[in-house]
Amino acid sequence: MAPLQLFEEIRARGESNAETKDRWYIVAATAMAAAGAGPDVAELYQLTTKDTSLAEEKHIQRRLKEAILKTSILYGVPRSLQALLPLFSILKEEQIDHYGPRTEALQNGETQSERRERGRRHFDILWTPAAAQANREKNFKYQPDLYLLNLETIYELWLSENTILNPVDTQMCTTAALICSGSPQQAMWHTRGIVRHGGSIVMARFAQEIAFEVGKAYGCDVEKVVRVDEIDFDDATPH
C-alpha cells in the first residue's frame, strides 16, 4: 500500500471518532518513526495540514513534533531525526512553531522537585503505586544509573511533561512506538497505561490498530503484541 493511501485510511478512521480525532496523526507518526519510516512523516504532515489555517497547522505541528521527540527515548534519537529533519525541511519560516515546553519551564524556574513529583505521579498511575515503587527499588538496587535514566530523566523530564500532550496522548503514542520498535511486553504495559491514565478501551484499541497497520506496511513484526481484549487492565504485578 502506498503511504498516502495508508495515511488517508488512517485519517478517515481517526477523524470519525471524537476520541481519536486530534490524535490519529501523532499515533501514526510515532509508529512510523519507530518503524524506521521517518522520512514519510513529512508526507503525513502535508496530508494532515492540507487546507488548514496557519494557526491550526502550527497546532498540528506542535503536537506531532512533541510526539516524535517524546517517544525518541523508546526507539532512539537517530530514528527520531529521520522523521524530524525531513519535516523541518518542508517548513517555510512563517510556518515554524517555535515552542519547547521543557525549555520554557526551565527558563521560568520549574524546580527539580516539581518535575520529580510529576514524574512520580505519572509512573504511579501507569503501574499503580505499589508496583511502581517496586520497579523503582529494583532499578536502583541493580543499577543506580538505570534509575537515573529511566525514572528520573525519562519520566520526570520527558514522558510526564503534559503541556502539549496529555497523559492519554502520551500513552497512545508510546504504545504505537513500542509496537513498531519490537517491544511487545512494554507495548502491553503502555496500552494498559492508556486506560489507567483515563483513556478508553476504544482509544487503546485504536492505538494498537494504527501501529499494526503502520508496522505491517513497513515490515515490522507485530505478531507478539498482546491485543487489547487479552490485557488485564487491573493487573498490578511488579515486573
Rank of each mutant, 00 (worst) to 15 (best):
S113R: 02
A35H: 06
A33P: 03
K21S: 09
E110D: 00
P101H: 08
R23Y: 02
E161Y: 00
Y75R: 10
F123P: 10
G76D: 01
L87T: 03
T49Q: 01
G199C: 13
L87F: 04
A176T: 06
S181G: 00
D145S: 14
D235M: 02
N150V: 13
I90H: 01
G76H: 04
L85R: 13
G109T: 02
T52G: 05
H239F: 14
D169P: 09
Q208F: 12
V27E: 01
L157C: 06
E57P: 02
M188F: 04
E230V: 09
G193T: 03
T30F: 08
V214Q: 06
S183Y: 07
S181C: 03
A31N: 10
N17Y: 08
R23H: 05
L146K: 01
V168W: 04
R196D: 06
D97P: 03
W189L: 13
A207K: 07
E156S: 11
F206E: 09
T191V: 06
T111W: 02
I164G: 02
P184W: 08
L157A: 11
A131G: 04
Q208T: 06
K58Q: 13
F88V: 08
G215V: 14
K141T: 07
T153M: 14
A207E: 05
G193E: 05
L64G: 03
L149C: 04
A105P: 02
L81D: 02
Y147Q: 04
A132S: 14
R118Y: 01
M32Y: 00
K216G: 09
H59R: 12
L91A: 04
I73T: 13
E209K: 07
V225Q: 06
S183G: 04
L91Q: 05
E152M: 12
T52E: 07
I210G: 07
L165D: 05
E93S: 11
